[in-house]
Amino acid sequence: MPLKYHEQMDRDNTLKLRGLLQELPPFCRCFFRAIEPRTSSRTRIAYAYDLRVFFQFLADSVPELSGKPIEKFVLSDIAGLPVLRLEEYMEYLKYRVREQEELPEDRASGRKGKGKIEILNHEQSIKRKISSLKSFYKYLYRDQLISEDTASLLILPKLRDREIIRLDENEVADLLDTAESGEKLTERQQRFHEKTALRDTAILSLMLGTGIRVSECVGLNIQDLDLNSDGIRIHRKGGKEVTVYFSDEVERILSSYLKARKKMPALSSSEDALFLSLQKKRIGVRAVENMVKKYASAVTPLKHITPHKLRSTYGTNLYRETGDIYLVADVLGHEDVNTTKKHYAALEEERRRSARNRVHLRED
């Protein structure tokens, strides 16, 4: 029996992580075993990449470690590092130069890069790498593998509030109209449009009408769609299975697409996939990202719209309609409602302001 999409992704990520661990010091493996029960395979891969950057920094910056292969590092190499050295690492993260062949995407594709590549990390990326380092040191200290947790003294960089980009109502309508008609696409894009119009409209409608993540969308099987109850069964982060419901408008579009999908030939590994690529395989995350970019660039070129922005658009519309932040958090699959509040704080302020004339002290 073929693996489900999320099971296949876990399998692939687990194998990928094993390869990454071969490039890290042996003492890192106990850390990854410890976090395995409470993290996703994708999160553990991110930790592995982050730690590899840290150890490469040490190999490049600490004289005693110069020329020493990362996989040969021992605990004593990091146990006595002063906070000043870790602060230098934070500074290093802002801008660094690496050999191009070391990039993960080159390794995954089999390409061989040439020369060096410059990497400029943004605040969010730096914060994540420092958080990974803090978690790593905290584990080593808790399990008495080191005598001092110097990383705990690091202060995480303060993130500036970023404007949350969403689609306006008219832009949502224009996006779907363009996906259906292809009118605003380039001549080259229109050549393929007839083959993908129904699928693209179904994907965009489903994401805008439910707020599901792009990984949840591409992982859908035909059996996960129930047109009788107007719901889809998806796998959230952490493997939790939930049913998300969609509107009658979305149901009509999905119903039309499903009739066409059942007539589409598919490779044996993708026979159950709801959404297919032109190569008759399950459509991938990158393909959906490119598809969203294509239509959004035609409709609203000044906004950088991604699948996550479609999710934000749905959350915004749902909150405006219901005013229930807990409902929004539940539907979007946020474990902590504070995460939702942070994203929709501006709308909360808008609602509070709108209440100023609701209560009258005296009759006019």
Rank of each mutant, 00 (worst) to 15 (best):
M90K: 13
S312C: 00
K114E: 15
E194C: 07
S152E: 12
Y295H: 08
A197D: 09
Q8W: 01
R107L: 12
E36N: 11
P265T: 09
L206D: 05
N338D: 13
L361T: 08
L267P: 05
K127P: 04
S247I: 02
S181H: 06
R85I: 10
Y5P: 08
N121T: 04
D330R: 11
L220E: 07
E105A: 14
I130R: 02
R96N: 03
A79S: 14
T186Q: 03
Y245C: 08
L361C: 06
N317L: 11
L347P: 12
D50V: 10
E105L: 09
R236F: 04
V292M: 05
V337G: 15
K240E: 13
K281D: 11
H122W: 00
S255W: 02
E180I: 10
E241I: 14
D106K: 13
F27S: 08
R128V: 09
R162L: 04
A34K: 10
N338R: 10
P82G: 01
R261K: 09
K341G: 07
V218F: 05
Y137K: 01
D10I: 08
L206F: 01
K303D: 00
D168G: 01
L185K: 05
Q189R: 07
K134F: 02
N121M: 12
D224L: 03
I305H: 03
N357Q: 04
G315Y: 02
D161C: 07
E163R: 00
T306S: 15
L75A: 08
I35K: 07
L156M: 04
T186G: 15
I283A: 05
R356N: 12
L347D: 15
V214D: 12
H334L: 13
N221C: 11
V337K: 11
S268L: 11
K263D: 13
R18T: 12
Y314D: 07
F246T: 09
L153H: 05
K94G: 15
G209W: 02
E64N: 04
G182P: 10
E363S: 14
D324R: 06
N228Y: 01
L154F: 02
I78W: 05
K281A: 12
G323P: 10
I78D: 14
K195V: 03
I305M: 06
L15S: 11
V288F: 03
K281P: 04
T150K: 13
K293E: 13
E163D: 09
K262T: 13
L318W: 03
S66H: 12
L145P: 00
I45Y: 00
E88P: 03
R11A: 06
A151R: 06
A46G: 11
A179G: 10
Y95P: 01
K293Q: 09
A46K: 07
N228R: 15
C30N: 09
E180P: 01
R128W: 01
E123R: 12
I45Q: 04
A355P: 00
Q124P: 06
T210A: 06
R261N: 14
I253E: 07
M9P: 00
D248A: 13
A46I: 06
Q22T: 08
R199G: 03
V214W: 03
V53M: 14
K112T: 09
D364R: 09
R188D: 11
D10R: 09
G80E: 08
E148Q: 09
V328Y: 03
L15Y: 09
L51W: 02
V74C: 11
R44N: 14
M9W: 00
F32C: 11
L65Y: 03
F73N: 10
L220S: 13
E148R: 15
A179L: 06
E148K: 10
